[in-house]
Amino acid sequence: MAQFALLLYAPAPADWSEAPPEELEAHGAYADKIGELGGSIVSGCALHSSTGAKAVRADGVTDGPLVDSKEVLGGVTIIEARDIDHAVEIAQQSPGTWRGGIEVRQLLG
């Protein structure tokens, strides 16, 4: 099976301590749902709030995320799925879609 990154975007500043309790609980159950759909989790993590981010470019460092937008990267889950369509099917079941969205990208290698 191929590996895919599910990039979870949430409303800025994507502070998980402010997420609704039912959403946090659903994220815990999501791992079981991925298995039921025939995929598996390789790894995953939530990120600290984007207010603590630093953007590094060739000309210097600035405070905040790299891109200023209403939704910011809040977490990453690496999954195994049959193909991109299967990975999208898995992503559609994520509670990460409730307040934000998920970008699905296949890993190289």
Rank of each mutant, 00 (worst) to 15 (best):
A29P: 03
I78K: 07
E25V: 03
D32G: 09
Y9C: 00
E89C: 10
A31H: 07
A46W: 06
A53G: 04
T51L: 10
T97D: 14
E71N: 03
L37E: 07
V88W: 05
Q93G: 11
L8T: 01
T97G: 15
R99D: 15
G52M: 04
I79R: 13
A46R: 08
Q3S: 15
W16T: 02
G75W: 02
A58Y: 10
P11W: 07
I79S: 04
I84N: 09
E22D: 14
S50C: 05
V76S: 01
R82Q: 12
V88F: 11
R82H: 12
H86I: 01
R57I: 03
R82C: 02
P13T: 03
P20N: 09
A55S: 14
A14F: 09
T77E: 01
A58M: 09
S49L: 08
L37D: 06
P21S: 12
V42F: 06
T62A: 05
S17F: 02
W98Y: 13
H48D: 03
E80N: 15
D59S: 07
V56W: 14
E23K: 00
G101P: 15
P21N: 12
R99G: 05
I34E: 00
S17E: 00
E103H: 12
A91M: 14
R99V: 01
G96T: 00
A91E: 03
G35M: 06
T62D: 06
T97E: 11
V67A: 15
S40G: 13
I34Y: 02
P13Q: 10
A2C: 08
E25F: 06
E36S: 11
I102N: 03
A10Q: 05
E71H: 06
H27G: 13
A46Y: 08
E18G: 00
L6K: 15
